[in-house]
Design a binder for these strands. Structure first.
Lengths: 330, 330
DNA sequence: CTCGCCATCTTGAACGATCCAAATTGGATA
DNA sequence: TATCCAATTTGGATCGTTCAAGATGGCGAG
């Protein structure tokens, strides 16, 4: 068992003081080039790595960021999270940060967890996925001056805090335009009840695209809970109308899957587009709007480290464009 | 901004010494009950939380465990990971540990990352998901006496290190028995090429169940890469034989999905069972063998903390039973 | 020749917890 | 009342790093 290599070991080996070694690591420009090299050689020869714990104790910073891992809300729409987490971890590593996970069954406990992570682990920042109107979590964090970024816009005030999001309206608009280009006119929309920022955003893109093409969207959309069964029911309802749509854009792959079943059951030809490009969409050949999750994660880290490393106090938000993945269903 | 609460603050407030506060936290039994309560009250009144960094520096332990987050190998079989991660994080929190993520593009870099995590962060242990024959990672960790558990058996030597696994053979056997009970006799199997521990295990369960029922499995199985397209091809092949199977058990949901397409294309009636119970299976109504991932994660943490907290040096491995989730396809 | 300045490097203290050894207390016993 | 033992409590050292301030040496200006 080799003895522990500390900054003092390196210092002895390079025949300088501890502080000089520290300077080589944290402020290389104030060390003479020749000395710097000698120290660097000692560092790699000994395999020295600075103890985060000791560093943290002195500086109060941990180089750790935290993300919540959720209990897989919905089987079909889950698995979006692990792509995001991977991107987050990868980009964070490159920036010298590590990623810590936490769970929380409700918002209140999540705040308790923040408190714990901050005081016990000196966490540097948080990445939140999805925020609601008047989210108490962001208020709590902001009150205490804790650095955080959200993946998902703050729907109340766009300048409330740094955020990264995907332009859902652009996604549904793109899907609608694609269908229009293929000759469809009566294009329906299956979405969630009004009130959720994400849902309203996605609906608005569809509506705007139809209007731009001179089509009246009235009566062509339905509001429903996010599930396969509800998607099927709503689509049946749309198809049973006097002038049924020949295509439908959906706010999620779950709804799209339901819609697809309704279409097949009715024995009609109708194009279906989903949202999120989940594995399910890929598996069954469902055309779907794909979010650039890896990119979104990377930008979250960028914003967070910009704040943490003191480059910017309030970095500009990032709005990413989704892309349509065309498969068999449209 | 409230002043930082340290062990000294608590000590002053409860009118005892720092050491007494420390004892209340780490060895409560040696402190008089009355004193203990007074200290506990001070702790909660002040909202004190021990600094992990300081504790870690003194004890050399971080109460941190690491898991690798993979770049979603395969869309369809991914999303198994996030359920596992959630279970892991939740159970670890209950045991007083936190979960850290890391990425690695290959085995060599993964070992470099171990080294980094261990020396810079004093990581306490690792959870590895999936190991190969003669895995260099487990050897490296074992050489250095680092605590770790694998989710997945070591296929060479079952006693090499603590592990948790799901009994794949029992899963395919259960699926086969289910089909036998429904009158099927010629039950096929779609699996991966021989050589992978997991794949061979799953195949063996099917074979054993057939033999036990007096059916000769010869010629009823195919070896193929894990993809939808290959699954379809292999199933077509099976169906084109002289005595085509009336049902098929698959080593994954990807293969099952392909098989399902082949069955529909051929216009025959044949039951299909998948493996892993992915969201895709749930979405399309595919009967599938489900792994108890939350339970597996929890047991991984149990084994790891048993080692870390010194209760046991080499805790007994855990083999969990999967369950068949019946849906439309079988 | 002396002084000051700059660049470079060194020294002592501090972060907040735990460990170790020594000191104090209270009660029982002689 | 003095003594002893066990149960608690106390003070000092320590983990590895960074911060703040001090020391060194060379060089040009007055």
């Amino acid at each position: 068992m080799a003895e522990k290599v500390t900054i003092a070991t390196v210092a002895r080996h390079a025949r300088v003081s501890r502080q000089t070694v520290s300077n080589v690591l944290n402020a290389p420009h104030i060390v003479r080039e020749e000395t710097r090299q000698r120290v660097q050689e000692a560092i790699s020869a000994l395999g020295y790595r600075a103890s985060q714990a000791a560093r943290q104790m002195r500086t109060g910073r941990s180089r750790l960021i935290a993300v919540r891992i959720e209990p897989t809300r919905d089987g079909i729409n889950g698995s979006v999270l692990d792509r995001f987490l991977h991107g987050l971890t990868e980009t964070a590593e490159a920036a010298g940060y590590r990623t810590m996970l936490y769970t929380a069954s409700d918002t209140e406990r999540e705040i308790t967890t923040y408190d714990d992570l901050l005081s016990a682990y000196d966490l540097d920042g948080f990445v939140l996925t999805g925020t609601d109107h008047g989210d108490p979590r962001t208020a709590w964090l902001a009150d205490r001056g804790v650095a955080f970024v959200t993946f998902g816009r703050p729907w109340d005030d766009p300048a409330a805090h740094p955020w990264v999001d995907v332009d859902g309206a652009a996604g549904t608009a793109q899907a609608t335009d694609h269908l229009l280009a293929h000759g469809h006119r009566r294009i329906g929309f299956l979405g969630w009840p009004a009130g959720s920022g994400v849902g309203d955003d996605r609906r608005s893109g569809w509506r705007a695209a139809l209007r731009a093409a001179g089509v009246d969207p009235a009566g062509l959309d339905r509001e429903t809970e996010d599930s396969i069964a509800e998607g099927e029911r709503s689509m049946r309802d749309l198809l049973s109308g006097a002038e049924p749509p020949t295509a439908v854009v959906c706010a999620s792959d779950s709804l799209a899957l339901g819609a697809l079943q309704a279409v097949r059951a009715a024995g009609v030809e109708a194009a279906v587009v989903g949202f999120d490009d989940t594995p399910v969409a890929a598996a069954i050949g469902l055309t779907s709007v794909s979010q650039p999750l890896g990119e979104a994660a990377a930008r979250c880290v960028d914003l967070l480290t910009a704040v943490l490393d003191g480059h910017q106090q309030t970095p500009a938000p990032v709005l990413l464009q989704p892309s349509l993945v065309r498969r068999h269903t449209a």
